[in-house]
Design a protein around this nucleic acid. Structure first.
Lengths: 203, 203
DNA sequence: AATTTTACTGAACGCTGTTTAGTAAAATTA
DNA sequence: TAATTTTACTAAACAGCGTTCAGTAAAATT
């Protein structure tokens, strides 16, 4: 049955073409301006074709969403070899900020935008969110067991830390840093994170 | 010229009717579902009428935006009488979180959504953002002059603090707290803020 | 060679923000 | 009071959106 296998391959290639085209436009011009019609036009297909491969726009962008998480995990996994949990936490923060700075489109889609939620999608993006969350909480728990955080609930501490770095990234990505000259913003992000970590360490 | 004065009054009333109707729908059903047509229908006017009073949707929502900031300042001004800057900072955080919890629609519009920016609008919303920013930095500067924050740059510290509370609120408003049961989320927000303030105070 | 299945599209539906030409009533002028 | 101008408003349209569906030409199967 060579034919059905080739067809299967072609189907996957078409899916990839759609995702790649959509990702390119999305990174280039943002979510709002990336319409199904514009994706189709860039692919030189009819808009209706996309719907043969993805149920709707939400499902298509969920594929991009998932890919973003893959990239995200590559950043986070850089810290795996660090023994000291507190230093690992520190580097985790740096990787987090770096991901947001280098992939603002992904960050926005993955962690700021409101998701239209379709049951299937939520399952998986939950998993990915859950994994990220576990990476953090595990590290925090290690820190607590080494005597840090004065015995505060690791869940609370994790949420605080995540909120801190997410807050910093959100400010940057949604343009709430106009108080500071553009060329100093990235520096400020890391400076704020550093003061935060200094506080954490001396707590 | 009683007539032109009456007309002026009527114009203001019409503007108010539009803003109030738009705000109601916006709070009830969110930004995306609040179309110009739905606002017009709720007012029992034609959609085109709204455009006689507001240049476009962005200008209309800027009016709501401004009103949101007024409410916001009411929350923040509760702390004015507190002498000790560190305790004022603490209460400022509580007021911030409370505003976000009690007015999630406003918070989203004012501090999370991307603004389509029309020159005029930016001027004013800048002013309001600037005022909020000054309230924070002034307090932080007082703290520093009382020996807190180990001589770190008040601008950096302010940005860190704002990011922390903004991060907490963003997580809640954009539904990134699914790791925690719904009835514990508000508690967790304040718990995280408390740990943060404990760190700040002992720094 | 005839039939079925596949991959795709043109055109439409109902929605959006926005513009424009036209109208009836109100205000002003004569 | 009658004629004219100004005001306040709307119906209808434009171009865009996500999405659906009937139809079609080519490919695969019988």
């Amino acid at each position: 049955m060579g034919i059905s296998e080739r067809k299967e391959r072609e189907k996957e290639e078409m899916k990839k073409l759609i995702i790649d085209t959509a990702t390119r436009l999305f990174i280039e011009q943002g979510f709002d301006k990336t319409s199904m019609r514009s994706i189709a036009e860039a692919m030189e297909y009819s808009p209706a074709t996309i719907y043969l491969y993805f149920k709707d726009k939400s499902e298509l962008f969920d594929a991009i969403h998932r890919q973003g998480f893959k990239v995200f995990f590559e950043y986070l996994s850089q810290v795996n070899t660090i023994e000291d949990p507190m230093e690992r936490l520190n580097q985790l923060g740096i990787q987090y900020l770096t991901f947001a700075i280098e992939n603002p489109g992904y960050y926005d889609l993955m962690l700021i935008m409101r998701e239209p939620m379709s049951t299937q999608r939520n399952e998986e993006s939950w998993d990915q969110g859950d994994t990220s969350h576990k990476i953090l909480t595990t590290t925090v728990e290690e820190c607590v067991s080494k005597g840090h955080f004065r015995g505060n609930d690791p869940a609370v501490v994790s949420f605080m830390i995540w909120s801190q770095v997410h807050g910093i990234c959100s400010m940057m990505i949604r343009d709430r840093m106009k108080f500071y000259p553009e060329e100093q913003r990235e520096e400020l992000m890391f400076a704020a994170k550093k003061v935060f970590m200094d506080m954490v360490r001396s707590f």
